[in-house]
Nucleic acid binder design. Structure first.
Length: 460
RNA sequence: GGCCCCUUCGUCUAGCGGUUAGGAUCCAUGGUUUUCAUCCAUGUCACAGGAGUUCGAGUCUCCUAGGGGUCACCA
């Protein structure tokens, strides 16, 4: 069975790039009816926070990516790691190193001065003497000293790293706490992960982890290293480039399905297809098709996708979503008229809410430029005439409202713009917005008349 | 700096030795719309550079350049 996992360290919010790797892992598991596990990498107790962990879980919930089984916390598994460390010590595959931090720093400096690669020199590898006083040793694993460490990366192909590039790295600190590369390998193996999909900043950790797998006789999983997401300039994505926290997208009015659709197409594709429902992603995704190259983050496409998903959302769904944007709409025929008049005008829920407010709220002010342009000449007379005819005809459908407008146009021998513009500004306070016929059908005669009279009062 | 990875329109990408190098987005223009948006149509725009292999190279090989990653008792 396919088992994948996402393993964030709880040091901050869930990053957009992290969400994409999580999505790839989730899809790989779902595609094969496998399992997607979540593991919190909190071995560095000083840097972890409960809030960060909750924020990550919240983001997963928002996008609807559920994990299988309980969340695994590494901080609760220290006994387990210790057991394996002891085993390696017993088997002489790992050893205690009494080098102090100061000595290590000196060694590094010497290597740097000689322009050599900085690496531990293995001086305690076969140490049998009396250990120096007053030093709590770290534990280092014996890495191969010659040859190549080779593995097949599902994205990048065969990767060969010279053994000399990997030193006897620390697997347990002086205080006994295990380190990252050790626990990752142990957990991935113990959790039976078959595919490890992660950012390619981990590519260089892979040979180290393979050392651990081999020392412990664990089965090595398939690795997939996904290239980074950069900003539009191709540089590392930072907060200056806009939203990097997944939850910011919710606040900005994006739908999770739009975000996911956007992310799945960053580094993966299926022919010319652009729109993928969650079901389609699951049935079509294969990690072997992940691109090698990094991709740049560009908001235009996300916006376009978001508009698409808003347009195609049901009224019920939009009503629910708009609650987060201070808009309480009841599920009624009127609401459904409002939504069909506005759905196609908002690229985000914020914009959609704004469009709806335009109709629902009595304008408290009139856009200066708009009123200057619209409320001039005979606008006042035309609006008055329209009001009279409106009361007389008492229309109820948008077609009927349109007929009233036509009648005014005909009688006054004017163009549609002569009535359309002032009417729009009177009703909405703005020169742009939904179709007038639709708006009027939503507002009803009384409300229309009230808004026109209010507008007429300020035209002088 | 050592090691490793990457390089097709501005951006996301298709391509897997023979294509007028395709799609999407953005942008521009036109149509639809009383406005704006939607929608529709059209257009501009790319194989980083150089050698080779081959009848033929975006596709294979090498070199160069550019970009990225990584070199912790952090994850």
């Amino acid at each position: 069975m396919t088992v994948t996992r996402f393993a964030p360290s709880p040091t901050g919010y869930l990053h957009i790039g992290g969400l994409r790797t999580a999505l790839f892992s989730w899809l790989a598991a779902k595609h094969n009816n496998g399992k997607f596990l979540l593991r919190i990498e909190d071995t560095d107790i000083a840097r972890n926070s409960e809030e960060a962990k909750d924020a990550i879980l919240e983001a997963f919930e928002w996008v609807g990516m559920s994990h299988d089984g309980e969340v695994v916390y590494q901080s609760k598994r220290f006994d387990l790691y210790k057991k394996y460390i002891d085993q390696l010590l017993r088997e002489k595959k790992a050893y205690k190193c009494y080098m102090s931090r100061e000595e290590l720093a000196i060694l590094r400096q010497e290597q740097m001065d000689k322009k050599e690669r900085t690496r531990y020199d293995g001086r305690y590898r076969d140490f049998t003497g009396t250990p120096p006083e007053g030093i709590d040793p770290v534990i280092r694993i014996k890495a191969p000293q010659e040859g190549m460490i080779t593995f097949i990366d599902g994205v990048k192909g065969e990767i060969n790293i010279a053994a000399t590039e990997v030193d006897d790295f620390v697997i347990a600190r002086a205080d006994g706490a295990p380190t990252y590369n050790f626990v990752v390998a142990v957990d991935d193996a113990l959790m039976d992960c078959t595919e490890v999909i992660r950012g390619d900043d981990h590519l260089y950790n892979t040979p180290k982890q393979i050392v651990v797998y081999n020392a412990l006789n664990f089965t090595i999983p398939n690795f997939y290293h996904v290239a980074m997401i950069n900003n539009e300039q191709g540089k590392k994505l930072s907060k200056r480039d806009g939203a990097t926290d997944v939850m910011e997208y919710k606040a900005l009015g994006y739908l999770p399905e739009a975000l996911l659709n956007f992310l799945v197409r960053l580094g993966w594709s299926h022919g010319d297809q652009e729109i993928f429902s969650i079901e389609e992603m699951i049935s079509l995704f294969d990690p072997k098709n992940i691109n090698k190259s990094s991709s740049n983050y560009n908001l235009d496409k996300l916006l376009w996708l978001n508009a698409h998903y808003i347009k195609n959302s049901s009224d019920e769904k939009l009503i629910e979503l708009l609650k987060d944007f201070d808009l309480e709409l009841e599920n009624s025929p009127k609401t459904s008229m409002i939504l069909s008049a506005t759905k196609e005008r908002g690229k985000t829920l914020i914009e959609l809410a704004k469009q709806i407010q335009l109709i629902v709220q009595v304008p408290t002010s009139y856009d200066e430029k708009a009123s200057k342009k619209a409320f001039k000449g005979e606008a006042k007379e035309i609006l008055s005439a329209f009001t009279l005819m409106l009361k007389e005809a008492n229309p109820s459908t948008k077609e009927a409202y349109h007929a009233v407008m036509e009648k005014v146009v005909f009688q006054k021998e004017i163009g549609f713009g002569k009535i359309g513009m002032p009417l729009r500004v009177a009703l909405l306070g703005s020169m742009t917005g939904s179709g007038l016929d639709e708006i009027m059908a939503i507002l009803g005669v009384n409300e229309i008349v009230a808004r026109i009279e209010k507008a007429i009062a300020i035209i002088e």
